[in-house]
Design a protein around this nucleic acid. Structure first.
Lengths: 339, 339
DNA sequence: CGTCAATTCGCAATCGATTGCCCAAAAGCG
DNA sequence: CGCTTTTGGGCAATCGATTGCGAATTGACG
């Protein structure tokens, strides 16, 4: 299988030493070899269809031109765009990305992390923002290069690329306030994610700012089922019902849709709902979802850029890049029916 | 970065030769070494936190324990489940998967393919079913191991794992016939995909079977925009309008939704729509989509199984696995209003 | 024409693990 | 007790590329 033509084959054909071939074929060292020789080597290589064995190269240079991307679950629609964003930056620069899914388990995360380290990946992009005992701390201690994406670094001095969560939530609350809503509920994501707390905090302060009553319900995971479960609980309470829901993300918001439907409530007529992320197809839901657009592809690309800066320029400054977000108003929010 | 403890360190601590360490740590060769020694080596390794350098191993064994997965676009929602399915089979067996996106370009496909070959991947899973000049033929000629997933092999004797497209379309047509529809349109996917023609053929024969009038409109890509464009064209025709649309996949069906909405037509009251794939969230669209469920995760897992069989057992039989599909009736189809 | 610096390129070590070959020690056997 | 067969494990080559070192060639310059 695969390539059988090696650097020595090229050397033989070009009538030079293998070392010379290596130098001739490498951009940074080709000035160490005569221009004519470079040309001879070049077309010897082309003639034979030579392509360097990156495993061998990796062994020698102890770099694999590969980066690991650790995310909770690829089937969560916000991740594919992020991954594509990462790829779009890395691929043209000769890097390959390996994506692994933890399914939210710290044990998986650790196992996958080790397996990638063993594969000599040159760095990591962490899309799992646990504040708990994730391997992020350990990775940093071990001197492994890394970047956080879509999650805060939680104390570890890795660079982080995030959307402007506070601003997004604030815009959502403002929008609802302008529509006349006075009693809001926020479905907060699991405590293990840094974003959950940021969003909840912003929700509370924004409600205060606009003089609204805001309460928070905690979810155990960012999933449709959990959103439905928690919304069911909210509706079961006897205290005064909210007229609008600010969900921690679009998945939770979708769960809210389901819950409302089960209870015979209409969205947005009875209750308005705002999501977060503007994941793909959220504009096609029933009803089309008002949500906060986060530039996922850009998040990915930017995180890749920061990682490469670490790898290639040994720049370990712990910058924090906050990308702007935008409230997309669609049909899941409307003016409150009566005061 | 990464691991600095090598096999020789372990050998030194255990008081044996590096070669012995290698044998002791390898399942298939550990019977060549005394049980006591194995134990000594084992905990020397544990004590030092040794973890083998898979690059070095790969160089020697010329296998990377990596498989390449080539798909058009990860943000197409049918692919994440397939990829997860592949992973679920490969990961426990020590393999890592590298996913690359061609964005439908043959040039990209070739470039990515070569780059993966150069990385010594042990095999490929092709999710790009071009019938044209994809690299699949060449890969086979070169003796590279591979499997087709979600696409037919198109003449190349690679194993293929597909959903039962014919049956799915037939079930859709039957469903519409039972609802009283008589004039159907099929939005056929691009000719370069083997599935497109299979589905179109099944559509036509099923219409004949049920005595319906069925016409076909060709799309240039499997995308929402293209579905909308083509449906616009269908609606612009002056001939008798269809009462139901069988879309080549869910993305096209979504485009049909958009087109209908633009034309002030209601789905399903004015026109019924059936999708294909049951991609994630298709039950949350407006209206919830009647579509054919394809077991994507299983497709992925099965293709991975077939690939490993080639890699590890040198079994190159070109089996073709057809997984059953199921029509999921939701709200985008209804009884025809009047005859 | 001799000396010194700059080019060019060959040599061989190296990255870390695997594995065929072979020798020594132990075990089996008559 | 001597001889054959196992068993255990050391030795060194190997995978394919990169790279520090130094030798040889060329050119510049006084």
């Amino acid at each position: 299988m695969s390539t059988r033509v090696t650097i020595s084959d090229v050397a033989k054909l070009a009538g030079v030493h293998p070392g010379t071939v290596s130098r001739a074929l490498n951009k940074k060292t080709e000035n160490q070899v005569n221009a004519g020789t470079v040309r001879r080597v070049r077309d010897a290589a082309k003639r034979l269809g030579y392509s360097p064995n990156s495993i061998a190269r990796g062994l020698r240079t102890s770099s694999s031109m590969t980066v690991g991307v650790i995310i909770p679950d690829l089937t969560n629609p916000i991740f594919p765009p992020i991954v594509r964003g990462i790829d779009s930056y890395l691929l043209p620069r000769g890097y390959t990305t390996v994506v692994v899914n933890t399914d939210g388990s710290d044990a998986n995360e650790r196992k996958l992390f080790e397996s990638l380290v063993q594969r000599q990946v040159d760095g990591f992009i962490f899309g799992t923002g646990h504040t708990g005992q994730s391997i992020v701390h350990e990775a940093y201690e071990r001197g492994i290069r890394g970047v956080m994406v879509n999650r805060d670094s939680g104390g570890v001095p890795y660079p982080a690329v995030v959307g402007d969560d506070s601003q997004g939530i604030r815009a959502s609350v403002e929008h609802l306030a302008q529509l006349g809503h006075r009693r809001l509920v926020h479905l907060e994501g699991p405590a293990s994610f840094s974003t959950s707390r940021v969003r909840a905090a912003s929700f509370l302060s924004s409600c205060a700012e606009y003089g609204l009553s805001g309460t928070v319900a905690l979810c155990d995971s960012y999933s449709v089922d959990e959103g439905q479960r928690v919304m069911d609980a909210v509706l079961a309470e006897h205290s005064s019902q909210p007229t609008a829901v600010v969900a921690g993300n679009d998945l939770l918001a979708l769960g809210v849709y389901h819950s409302l439907r089960m209870h015979g409530l209409r969205c947005p007529e009875d209750i308005s709902v705002v999501g977060f992320n503007d994941m793909p197809f959220s504009g096609d839901f029933q009803p089309p979802m008002t949500t906060v657009r986060v530039p996922q592809t850009e998040l990915g690309a930017e995180s890749a850029r920061l990682l490469l800066r670490q790898i290639e320029d040994a720049d370990r400054s712990a910058v924090r890049v906050v990308l702007p977000v935008e409230l997309i108003v669609r049909a899941s929010t409307t003016r409150v029916h009566q005061a």
